[in-house]
Design a protein around this nucleic acid. Sequence first.
DNA 1: CGGATATAGTTTCAATTGTAACCATTAGTT
DNA 2: AACTAATGGTTACAATTGAAACTATATCCG
Lengths: 162, 162
Amino acid sequence: MTGSREKVADAAPDAGSLQLDRFIPYRLSVLTNTVSMVIAGAYEREFGLSIPQWRVMAVLARYPDLSAVEVAERTAMDKVAVSRAIQGLLDDKRVLRAFDKGDRRRSILRLSAAGQAVYTRVAPMALRYEAELLSALNPSDQRTLDRLLARLMEQAKSMQAR
Amino acid sequence: MTGSREKVADAAPDAGSLQLDRFIPYRLSVLTNTVSMVIAGAYEREFGLSIPQWRVMAVLARYPDLSAVEVAERTAMDKVAVSRAIQGLLDDKRVLRAFDKGDRRRSILRLSAAGQAVYTRVAPMALRYEAELLSALNPSDQRTLDRLLARLMEQAKSMQAR
DNA sequence: CGGATATAGTTTCAATTGTAACCATTAGTT
DNA sequence: AACTAATGGTTACAATTGAAACTATATCCG
């Protein structure tokens, strides 16, 4: 019925045959946005935390006394984003800041008691969301995902380097 | 050596043990951002196209004569983003807009000849980037990725629904 | 018909984000 | 010491994005 003659019809011939909903970068983007919105909504609702703030708290919980640039490295955020997240956390008294004796530019950051308290509640929630997402995959596929993400990240970084 | 007593040490005990760089939503986000930046930079540099504009063109190439909301559905963008992308494409004369006879609210969008010409150059470039990214995986892993993304997207949508 | 409701799309305004410029301090060089 | 360059961090400004309000048209229902 459909294709006996040429010149389009309904499904266009298409340069190199690209279909958006099969295009991996697009699918990654949609997936990430959906996941982020779900989780960010919960952080915000329950704790008044933005995603950047959450990331900063997560690294400070595990590695206290980092400087802002060290936080930036470990969160894949730029230093401006880190500065802003920290400012908010300082305002909310969830982070304490000191400055290095030997190098007075360098800040030394850690969670306050209040920050710790918040963190011990956010972290399990984050892990539950992750677990719920991954529950769509069996354990073997979960390990595979882990591996594929690592490889893709490597490759993406090398593409970025050029 | 390390763990015979409790109460911290250097690597914090951590609520439920969360490590940011092992946290899937974070890794997805970093991967997506990296990939998007690489590709968006190329679209912008070579064609003056934003990612939203590129998405709109991709669906119109394949499905001409959609309305703006139909474009929105097929690009996972909201109607404001679509409206703005289309405005830019109209300004650049890469998209033509007519209005439905029977329902004059409804627009009917398609690529102009110039838009088609651009598209036939962008699409192969997009596919090359995708191929380069995926070249980090063997064919079997590529199929697996496809499957896992589909499952995760399903699950993310169902989480969002609540 | 006339009034409420819904839909397509745009505009407006606020919040978020990115880039560049900017202090302050430290390190290197002569 | 004095000058330059580099580093840590913040600020300022522009661009992007999101949410809500708005216009126009169409539909529903009495």
